[in-house]
Simulated assay, not measured.
Amino acid sequence: MARALGLAALAALAFAPGASASVIGIDMGTQYMKVASGLDIVVNFESKRKSDNLIAFYRGERKFAAEAANLIRRKPDNVAARLASMIGRNADHPAVQGLADQYLQVLPAFNESAGVLEMELEGASYTPQELTAMLLQFAQAITKDHTGSGVRDAVLTVPAWYTQSERVALLDAADLAKLNVLTLIDTTTAVALQWAIDRVYEEDHYVLFYDMGAGGTEVSVARFYPMSDKGKNVSAFEVMGKGWDETLGGFAFDLRLTDILAEKFNKQVGKGDVRKHPRPMAKLREQSRKVKEILSANVEIPVNVDGLHNDIDFRGHVTRREFAEKTR
């Protein structure tokens, strides 16, 4: 899925007027960012095909991807996450208000004089657009490292639930990054485009595309039909309809696991509620993601977090049955 998204986005603008010879596709997911250049998936500085969609500031330096993720346990108040849920939105938006229940150390605040959301990191304030621009610059940097040449033109994928406000804000971020956006394309539409490129149908054919990401779930139905281009049969398509749930994604499952771990720690300690303390909860939230991935292939997993709260180590285990019951 990740590769199809990137390559389809590129294919959409491969012959766009005014585009440079080098066009990249960027999938700005809620949790990860993927970049494609031509037919290649760009690997980052850690030789990984996807990068944590995080930015951190530590001792005056910007940290991205794995370096930012490594700071979550030690310096969670230096790390900005979930920017895709904030960009182009105000403090009253349900997705922004919901961040307070996700155990994030750094939350946005509304600057009334400027009329925008801001996040404070190492004593400085940044808007979601400014932070997203830095992530786009990181995408350009890893592309140059991977291909040996710079890039100016890009296609960006966006979730189906983005309104005009979010899309304009993303374009503003790209402008700050000096990145020329040829178009924005919905994620499931990008997949449908890739599907059409690889297949030719002799009659109408309907396909349902389903994408559950970290932030939400999108579904679309596309109709593929034959079309003649200079005497050659090719596939064309149209999106017949789409639906989404912005609250149902990987993060929702992570939060259920986070609650399980918090309950177990509270039971271990015997007093107080660790959920009232943002720093240890940030550690448990990060740990829950790893637990979720391991439980997909194992029926149980031991969980150990040193010095979780008040210098108390957390020792426990979680079963797949517990997880399943919590997510019903």
Rank of each mutant, 00 (worst) to 15 (best):
A160I: 14
M240A: 13
I24H: 01
N310Q: 09
P17V: 10
R279G: 01
D273Q: 06
T188G: 02
I142Q: 03
A12M: 07
L5W: 02
L117V: 05
L308D: 04
A222W: 01
G249S: 14
Y206E: 07
A84T: 09
S125K: 14
M212Y: 03
L248T: 15
V116S: 11
V269C: 07
F237N: 04
K50N: 08
S113F: 05
D186P: 02
S165R: 10
F323L: 12
V305L: 12
V291P: 01
R328L: 09
G216K: 03
L5P: 03
V79C: 05
G150Q: 00
P94E: 06
L104Y: 09
Y32K: 13
A196P: 00
L255W: 02
R279A: 11
Q102A: 09
F237S: 14
A68P: 12
E166K: 05
A12K: 14
N70G: 15
P280S: 03
V303S: 04
D52L: 07
A56C: 04
S228N: 15
S220D: 07
F45S: 11
E246S: 13
K75V: 07
K292E: 06
L131S: 08
L179C: 08
T258M: 10
I41A: 00
L104A: 04
D273P: 14
H205Y: 11
V23C: 06
L136D: 02
S85Q: 08
V269E: 10
A297D: 11
A2P: 02
E118T: 11
E67T: 10
D313H: 08
N180P: 04
A12W: 03
E46R: 11
P76T: 04
L176K: 09
F253Q: 08
F251C: 07
F110P: 06
L131D: 09
I72P: 03
A133S: 15
Q140S: 01
V116R: 12
A109N: 08
H205N: 12
A109D: 10
E325V: 10
D175P: 00
F224S: 07
K271A: 13
L257H: 03
M212K: 10
P17D: 11
Q129T: 13
T189G: 01
G215R: 06
Q137E: 14
M227E: 13
D186G: 06
K75Y: 15
E322P: 03
I72V: 15
